[in-house]
Design a binder for these strands. Structure first.
Lengths: 228, 228
DNA sequence: GAGTGAATGTGGACACTGTTCACATTCGAT
DNA sequence: ATCGAATGTGAACAGTGTCCACATTCACTC
């Protein structure tokens, strides 16, 4: 479809399979990324996949990595668009708000990719101990940095910093999941917008220990534009 | 195995299939509840299932209903064990705390059932509008009641009541998901306990708009015992 | 009590999936 | 040019959901 030749082996099958897998995941979630469909789309025999992935699981995990990257990109874009006419503390809080809203909007706009990003099948279930660093994914790292920046800007007291990442991530991730799979899913979009905003404010309040500061919340310019 | 006769048709196959499905879901999540395995366990031919369920999906949804019930039961038990030597407001807050911790502990203790409880495949995707009441599941109803009771007890101001259910549910559900599928999963149990407690406190703070009151938190008597 | 229609369970088949085996092709280095 | 390693192919197997025609059994009527 893209390359002209198609003479020899294939050139770069692994990348092609992950790419096709991403499309499938986008349309139908992790369960839709199937070996046979991906190889078929790549114009290759089913078994060819086994030269690049041990398992179907390994393919899906590779796709999941891409999905995580897409999510991280969406968050970064939204954060970088933060207006710069705010005080340091307000700006830090606004950035946290944007992390949360971008996370939620990504889940709503790309439910298949979102679900895939959290696909994990008991890999290295036996490896005795896994340090946290090994598992940290890009979106989570963004959240950590944002919270650290809040402490630096004086928008979050240092003694409230520990655990803050879990409280924030939990609230936002939970709402995203509920908005995609739960009862919220059938509500009209504006209602979901309002709920999302309320949940994010509540998470910020919960972490800071005090209601949202002077300036009213900004954020939430409707939707995001995910990558291919 | 249980019944003595086994002469005629089967007596009550539908119930048997749901029951077997629950076992499968418990061990392997929703994807493990398979028509053939369930019918096999019930000692019946695969197609017999189609006399009671239109689809594999319908079976899984029935199992999901049971899983939701099990979750609701776990929450109720924990809430009912709230000590009664607390003031009304403190008691109301403690009950909310217990709802959250029970939810999280259920997810950790029965990941398969927990995941199954949230299984939803675009059922009635075309039915124009679905009122929220149709979709409300037992665990969520418990949360609503607990929050209403907080308002009555003066532990939550009425103007903070709206959206509170979503903020609470999001935080708790998100952490449960992360603890089961996410990076938290590999941490030792005591660490997860501490994180769970912190997340729940943060959620309560976020909803009430002010840090946790005088008395230190109680809750969290380690684990729960789910049904068969 | 025999008979009849509805409910329920069976057997066989098909398409689809992941996966393995032996085999074919092509690339890259000697 | 040759030979080993990398990569792709074909046929096959087990497992899954699902449909079809057929068999059994229940519940009810005459």
């Amino acid at each position: 479809m893209s390359s002209p030749a198609r003479t020899y082996h294939h050139g770069d099958l692994r990348r092609a399979l992950v790419s096709e897998g991403l499309q499938l995941a986008r349309a139908g979630g992790p369960s839709a990324v199937t070996l046979r469909e991906a190889t078929r789309a790549a114009g290759v025999s089913p078994n060819a996949a086994y030269r690049h992935f041990a398992d179907r699981d390994e393919l899906v995990r590779a796709v999941a990595g891409e999905a995580q990257l897409a999510l991280a990109t969406a968050i970064m874009q939204r954060v970088e668009a933060t207006p710069d006419d705010l005080g340091p503390a307000d700006a830090a809080i606004e950035r946290l708000r944007r992390v949360g809203l971008a996370y939620i909007d990504f889940a709503r706009g790309e439910p298949g990719l979102f679900e895939t990003a959290f696909f994990t099948q008991d890999t290295h279930a036996n490896d005795a101990i896994v340090t946290l660093d090994d598992e940290i994914v890009a979106p989570f790292r963004l959240l950590m940095e944002t919270l650290d920046a809040m402490v630096d800007a004086g928008a979050l007291s240092a003694d409230r910093r520990p655990f803050a990442e879990w409280a924030c991530w939990s609230a936002v991730h939970g709402f995203a999941d509920i908005a995609v799979h739960g009862p919220v899913r059938w509500q009209p979009a504006p209602v979901i917008d309002a709920l999302a905003a309320a949940v994010v404010e509540s998470a910020i309040t919960g972490v800071r220990g005090t209601p949202t500061p002077p300036g009213a919340p900004i954020g939430n310019p409707s939707a995001e534009t995910p990558p291919a």
